[in-house]
Design a binder for these strands. Structure first.
Lengths: 351, 351
DNA sequence: CTGAAAGCGCTAACAG
DNA sequence: CTGTTAGCGCTTTCAG
């Protein structure tokens, strides 16, 4: 059995109050007793009981991270960064996956963990912001990469329109003309794909090109398989082949490159490819992948900052007095082999 | 403010005891009062306070997952599966990363979360089993992929010696003779790399080949970069070039293939490559990667089963009466393009 | 079938 | 500077 404050107090011949003070440094304790108590603490291997502490404090020190899937490279990297940022603030992270399903998003917000976490960070796919905030009740919540017209919660995201515009412009500037967009997800309530589509079209128009619906290929998921399949579709449609693709995620892009290879389409000579997310695979793929790189560390840091602002402030709850924030995190375009102008072929390491 | 049992009781005009019974179905309640209480419950949107419940029960419903890094593809996939398996048992998972550092492994076991979790699943790199069990104290613990001569804790792992043997044999059978092993990690206390090396040598000897120390390249980590660097080293050493590589992880293998490409070494024609882990990237890489595929779902399931056996049994603690188990999970060799006999070239999808 | 009350371990208000 | 004690919300023993 683990020893409690009472046990330690008995052993040190002081009251629990004093022991508590020593443990937390909450009030001044005479050096003599402090040493004695510390010794008893060590001897008994005292560890505070978190449940009791939470019950008292009304806070658990846990925050929930709700994402579509842990094993996806993008969310995996993000989750890792969030766990570390949380650690710095003495928070512990509970991770849950929704697989992008509405019922799971709903369940995780209200049912399973809402009562136990101090706050939530969620990357929603199926639910829109107002429904999310309804489910979350009064638990402070930060949305990742979600559009929220009515501003009901805090947001942290890159400027998706701008980023997609830059990616597309890069393709235009390297001489591409039939630029496809693989990644729109009409069924999702998440605005991300929509924003990237907007940026893509915007860049085309600015370059004097007309967006062609045939070149906009929707996908059911952002996985490699979906990318591979979408590319097959695109090639099978007949008509003039695309000479570039802007993929809404790196995973899609990797699937696209796989299909290209299977069909004898050379990347980047015949087809330039740009992805989004800057996952590690893309740095080592063959060819290496040009991509939009969001500052993930900053996403993690700012999201936690938002939560902290609410959890530790009096009127901080979601329905409290702290106004919802919209935080835009920087991104940059990383050019690698998959979109290099066709001069040196595909051989050779990227810089 | 969230409503408590007392609030509900007051509203329904009954005692807290009765409300508690309705919530938990723990004793029989007359239909009439049950309905009345249920109504009060709904009206107030009652949610049990987990902290209080844990304080009472002495259990938190949380389990800790301690892995080197969340964002690695292998651990990401495993973490996802564990979270789901835990959900089925009404457990919630806390994930922490050690980056393979001894101090982090120690800290996470004893300091930060040990007091709050009901059990631990750990994939150790830096600490050996007996030190781990010392740090964990009496918290039930399951080790993933770790050798433990003194059997101080439960284990779940594939048969690494056998798996490495099979992978190497496959290379021998497709006509390779100078087979390198990239992945030994002498500094790590984790026995995994060592076991894979044993299996590799064993297969070579059985085929009448003599293990050559020059072909055994140690690595500092299991990342792509380390693989790329190790391959460069191997090629720069001079002497006859290897015609195959057994990499101790898929990530290493992907780095190796990257270097091969940069150096003009064709895979699989000039160099066959086999990895370990069966991560998703390997299915979409160019060429696709032959690998040893451990049954990850079963690893997750069995690990949780072990924990459940201890947490829910009277003498179940780590130092209790339940004897430590050693569970071996199945694996299979998945042959893809990277090790195909050099006949059809690298073009064409793998089956 | 239901009520009263003890107590899980901790913190903090109140005394001394 | 330190002891005493109430009470966080819940489960459960003991009565009725």
């Amino acid at each position: 059995m683990r020893s409690s404050l009472k046990d330690v107090a008995a052993r040190a011949g002081v009251s629990v109050r004093t022991v508590s003070n020593v443990v937390n440094g909450s009030a001044s304790v005479s050096e003599k007793t402090r040493v004695r108590v510390q010794q008893a603490l060590d001897e008994l291997g005292y560890r505070p009981n978190l449940a009791a502490r939470s019950l008292r404090a009304g806070r658990t020190g846990l925050i929930g991270l709700v994402i579509p899937e842990i094993h996806s490279p993008y969310f995996g990297e993000l989750a890792g960064l969030l766990v570390e940022a949380a650690q710095r603030r003495s928070w512990t992270v509970i991770i849950d996956q929704t697989h992008g399903r509405a019922d799971e998003e709903r369940r995780l917000l209200k049912g399973t963990h809402a009562p136990i976490v101090d706050g939530l960070i969620i990357s929603p796919w199926a639910l829109d912001a107002s429904e999310l905030s309804k489910e979350a009740g009064s638990t402070p919540m930060v949305l990742l990469g979600e559009r929220d017209p009515r501003q009901v919660a805090d947001h942290v995201a890159v400027d998706n329109v701008l980023a997609a515009d830059e990616a597309t412009r890069h393709l235009v500037e390297t001489g591409r003309r039939r630029i496809a967009a693989i990644g729109p997800q009409p069924e999702l309530r998440n605005g991300t794909a929509e924003q990237r589509l907007t940026g893509y079209r915007q860049a085309l128009r600015r370059a004097g090109l007309t967006p062609d619906p045939v070149l906009e290929v929707p996908v059911p998921t952002l996985h490699r398989t979906a990318g591979a399949r979408a590319m097959e579709e695109l090639l099978d449609r007949g008509g003039p082949a695309p000479d570039a693709v802007f993929a809404f995620s790196d995973e899609l892009a990797l699937g696209i490159m796989r299909t290209a290879r299977d069909r004898g389409v050379r990347v980047p000579e015949d087809l330039a490819v740009v992805g989004f997310d800057d996952i590690e695979d893309g740095r080592f793929s063959n060819p290496s992948l040009t991509t939009v790189s969001p500052d993930k560390a900053q996403i993690a840091e700012r999201a936690l900052q938002c939560l902290a602002d609410r959890v530790y402030s009096p009127g901080g709850g979601l329905k409290g007095t702290v106004p919802p924030q919209r935080i835009t995190v920087p991104h940059r375009l990383v050019v690698r082999e998959s979109s290099r102008p066709a001069e040196g072929g595909s051989r050779g390491a990227g810089s």
